[in-house]
Design a protein around this nucleic acid. Sequence first.
DNA 1: TAAATCGTAACCACTGTAGTTGCAATTAAA
DNA 2: TTTAATTGCAACTACAGTGGTTACGATTTA
Lengths: 144, 144
Amino acid sequence: MSRSTSFAVAIHLLVVLSHANRKFVSSETLAAGVQTNPVVVRRVLARLRNAGLVDSQPGVLGGSRLAVKAIDISLLDAYRAVRTGSLFSLHTPAPDCPIGGRIPEVLGENLALAEEAMEEFLEEVSIEELAGEILPGYSDDLRH
Amino acid sequence: MSRSTSFAVAIHLLVVLSHANRKFVSSETLAAGVQTNPVVVRRVLARLRNAGLVDSQPGVLGGSRLAVKAIDISLLDAYRAVRTGSLFSLHTPAPDCPIGGRIPEVLGENLALAEEAMEEFLEEVSIEELAGEILPGYSDDLRH
DNA sequence: TAAATCGTAACCACTGTAGTTGCAATTAAA
DNA sequence: TTTAATTGCAACTACAGTGGTTACGATTTA
């Protein structure tokens, strides 16, 4: 349903950065792991930067790094940073239909609650935790 | 994110049908309320039919009706009937990268759990309940 | 000054969605 | 038996979102 992989890419980037010990990692290095184009990576990084999760620096030895400790970044933080709309899309029914007229309100409410249930789960998982599941103990220097 | 409105349309159709007392409602009538094309409605109805939630009949006086009581249809039933993939999409990272190699497994697991949390919410809301919120007491004959 | 990197705009290709038309099959009514 | 209303489904189009790519000015270090 969600055709976009930005969320998965965002998580991937954050996990990699969490292993880089605040050293700047270039978008090219990151793109190699994500297996995509550096510009695509920078687009996702831009979102994460706007959300205050990473910071970046241009120039030789430039790149991006975590702006917040991995244990303080939840999957929900990443989700909110990159999401473009709500999980479910409503249609626009006939407003003069007795049912259609109230569908957006009632259904919208219920779907928002469903989305909230999902977000509450995401909130409980941190990048640190995820990184631990992925690579226990790994902390190489990925810089250049 | 989810560009498709099929789920919302499906709910709308089920709520309308729940007010029709097992009488057949034509896709044209349904399309008027949903404010779309009858073929679009029939496409969603086809999914609901495959899931055993409605049945249809061609010919004059034909149409669709609930195959199951509204109280026995959950939003999750409708969701599963029309969904085309999982809620989140994964990317395909470099398998030789120590992190990328395990991202699909670990992240996939976590996102599946997040999706489950949402589904558990949907499971608790029935079409009957939703119809009650939308139009308490309404049960006109919508047939032709 | 040169090289590496970022941020961002611009463009292209692919894909999924909704809308639309068309038609054979089915069913009820005249 | 014929006519009309309806379904199911295939095929086509238009539109929008996504990812990939190129390009270029700005920034920073060596």
